[in-house]
Design a protein around this nucleic acid. Sequence first.
DNA 1: CCTTGCAGGGTTAACGTTAATCTAATAATT
DNA 2: AATTATTAGATTAACGTTAACCCTGCAAGG
Lengths: 339, 339
Amino acid sequence: MSVLLKDIAEKTGFSINTVSRALRGDKKLSENTRRTICETAEMMGYVRNSAAALMRKGTSNEIGIISGDSSNPFFAEVVRGIEETAKQAGYRILLLNTDEFPEREADYMKTFVSMKVAGILIVPVFHDDVCQKIYRTISVPYYFVGRHVEGITGHSILHSDFQSQYDVTQSLINKGHRRILYIVGPENISNTIDRLNGYLKALDNNGIPRDPDLIIRTNGHIEDGFASINWALNRSLSFTAVACFNDLVAMGAIKALSENNYRVPDDIEVFGFDNLYISQFMQPSLSTVDVPKFALGKIAIETLLRHIGNPQLPYDDINLNTRLIFRKSTNDRLFLKEE
Amino acid sequence: MSVLLKDIAEKTGFSINTVSRALRGDKKLSENTRRTICETAEMMGYVRNSAAALMRKGTSNEIGIISGDSSNPFFAEVVRGIEETAKQAGYRILLLNTDEFPEREADYMKTFVSMKVAGILIVPVFHDDVCQKIYRTISVPYYFVGRHVEGITGHSILHSDFQSQYDVTQSLINKGHRRILYIVGPENISNTIDRLNGYLKALDNNGIPRDPDLIIRTNGHIEDGFASINWALNRSLSFTAVACFNDLVAMGAIKALSENNYRVPDDIEVFGFDNLYISQFMQPSLSTVDVPKFALGKIAIETLLRHIGNPQLPYDDINLNTRLIFRKSTNDRLFLKEE
DNA sequence: CCTTGCAGGGTTAACGTTAATCTAATAATT
DNA sequence: AATTATTAGATTAACGTTAACCCTGCAAGG
């Protein structure tokens, strides 16, 4: 069927072992032999059977990535950060997508373990018994990217969710807003929980009563932002600002506001979260929280690689800073409205 | 180290083979034995070494996907279509990203072949000698998704690039436009070539002279649309409509027009291509070509699976139809402008 | 001249799983 | 009762690669 080491060995007259070593660039072989073998292999169209190699070696040069929501460009940007560094270090990336289903997360974890990947980066759900059990018992190095998991410490690279949403809210309050609609993200992920808490804490600290009507739970997709605003307007809720779980939601929200003849930011100010690449091109351009997505991926893979290189290395959480970006979906002056 | 079939065999008193068969759900075993073994395996935390299994079986239950540009949500939507059907058929998806670099495409092809995947779906570049050689010699079933490759026939699932861009252009011409700016996509991919030809052909058929100034070559990213319009405006080019390689470019283009105080669609009409999910939420919502992305993925994987099931099956190109979607970045009346 | 060292390469035994083949015991058929 | 099928499971031999160890011959050193 396909060309094997054996075939190259027969053709060149060297042993299988020598061929194997030549193809892996073993220094102990003469330059001549190495070249002969490599050229013959190339000519015969040899492709290493990595299953066999892997079985023998016990570990591969692959990093498994379990991403949360493929429809959100956020993760694509993080993955880029991972990919580049991984490639330079000689590792390959394998990508699987859970779409936030915990069963898939558990399944994919097993898949990667079964594939003997060198390490795993995960965008996990917050609570799931099966997953948590896996995280507590697994021996492959792993890190959570941009999220944390209930009861598992030291394995997360985070980005100040609580503080950032607190700051966003405080910034809106500073400008005079008292009724700030918050569109919540998907349940069971830490970002949603932390950001919501940041929003609530800011209200509390400013003596603004929590109003359950102003908290709308969604799945964090673009259409959810759209639907949430329509729902709120239909119920005649009064609010002067909208803080969104993420930029996609904000995009949907702005669309709905605009269709209902509210001007953003003059009638209502809108704040996003993530700073997607497209957010600067939205109309109006979106004020948001800049999450260092590329750096997040880069630091995640660098940290993971360190653990792969040294299994003794103790694990530790890492937290990245964000910054608020003010664009045209908010004003840079006090919000004044006749009420 | 990790739990093996052998360990379970010792614990339960059955042979390794019986354990293996029980875990794979072999019908020839008594229900009792099967349950005992599975429960013991579960308890001991057994995870199959898929490298060993793969080596023995010679082929895996994985489909390799080589995608072109991870920053474009287009592919995420296609991959969803692939993923769902693949999962139902018991296959798993492995995703790699070339960012349009031919070397990576070739490298990843070898990777997947080396991994003994069951089949490969590729979003390929149009011309690359190394890649083309691989496509001509490879024995793993494969299909190109949404693109075709120079000199390789019968392996593409397409979506009427030429005709769609022709129709877009004709539609603009019908409304009175004579100077239509076309923002071209990345070189060396078939979509760019076919769409540009559709645009040119429509001009030709309507007796409109080709104007090289109205053709701007880009990489098809959002910032390219933005930069192209700024460039064109700086050069004081006159045009009344913009046809874009894709929706991202259109988004950037609209942004630039708007920042330069052109109203879309009243002063200038803009047409996209792809119909991304976000395009309906843009401001103004984008007129575009609806490419059936989910169906594209679904049909691609279905076709591929058929070939995996029956290697004798002859290969054939497939072409999907698109339709024009008219939203608010174009008017539904004749374009009239004092010139 | 004999040892030592080393470059260059060969031998052999795994790695963990699965498939083909075989065996024993029970059930069904005549 | 004797034969044949059937069921449930055991034995054994791969799958292709790699790593540990072994071998040979030549050059340098004493």
